[in-house]
């Protein structure tokens, strides 16, 4: 995040950055805990039977694959293999975009079955919306990463920006790991 030089710390800047990022992720996860709490408080373990299982499974798979490509990107840049890094980032971005399109299709269907004016709709749209918003910010960050990559930034000794973005992307995936069963599978 920041690259100031510090002379009084016994820790490397990389370590400090990592700790800060983890704390931020911890704090951010609270939003999703609150949403899960809301979901169970209002609905118990009920779910709408009309929910589209096929789309749910497909977008879950997409996000999972994107996590793998993100992971591969990080391994490649740690080895200094920039070309493979860029390709994997690009794949991650594309998968993320397809995920968002999938959510869009799911939303347009959900509007017919349980619009935001119903209880399940309220919970469903807020949870998927909050998650999609994080996917969107993740995509913007990945886009920036790609842009900086084309400018020749990041090497095997200095790829904190890539590492942070990829960690954030994994975090978004974890959220979906909990949201997917909470919205689609519970009964």
């Amino acid at each position: 995040m920041t690259t100031n030089t510090l002379h009084s710390s016994r820790f490397s800047q990389l370590y400090i950055n990592r700790l800060g990022l983890w704390l931020f992720i911890l704090s951010e996860s609270v939003i999703f805990v609150a949403l899960l709490f809301t979901r169970f408080y209002l609905l118990g373990v009920e779910r709408a039977p009309e929910i589209n299982q096929t789309i749910g499974l497909i977008i879950t798979g997409l996000l999972l694959v994107s996590s793998l490509t993100a992971y591969r990107a990080e391994v490649h840049i740690a080895q200094g293999n920039r070309k493979a890094f860029m390709n994997n980032i690009l794949a991650t971005i594309l998968l993320g975009i397809v995920f968002l399109i999938g959510v869009g299709i799911e939303w347009s269907e959900a509007f017919d079955h349980f619009p935001p004016g119903t209880l399940f709709g309220t919970v469903f749209f807020t949870m998927t919306g909050m998650h999609a918003f994080h996917v969107l910010t993740g995509l913007l960050l990945l886009g920036l990463l790609y842009l900086r990559g084309t400018q020749g930034a990041y090497s095997k000794n200095d790829y904190w920006g890539a590492e942070a973005t990829i960690k954030y992307w994994h975090f978004v995936d974890i959220v979906w790991v909990f949201f997917y069963p909470a919205l689609y599978l519970l009964s």
């Binding site: 704090s27 951010e28 609150a34 935001p116 807020t126």
Partner: peptide, 25 residues
Amino acid sequence: SLLATNFVFMVMLMVILDRISGMGF
């Protein structure tokens, strides 16, 4: 602050959603 604040962030957002988008928390 780290562990509690986002609860209020979310609940404030819920009120806004209830107001502007017809949701019904």
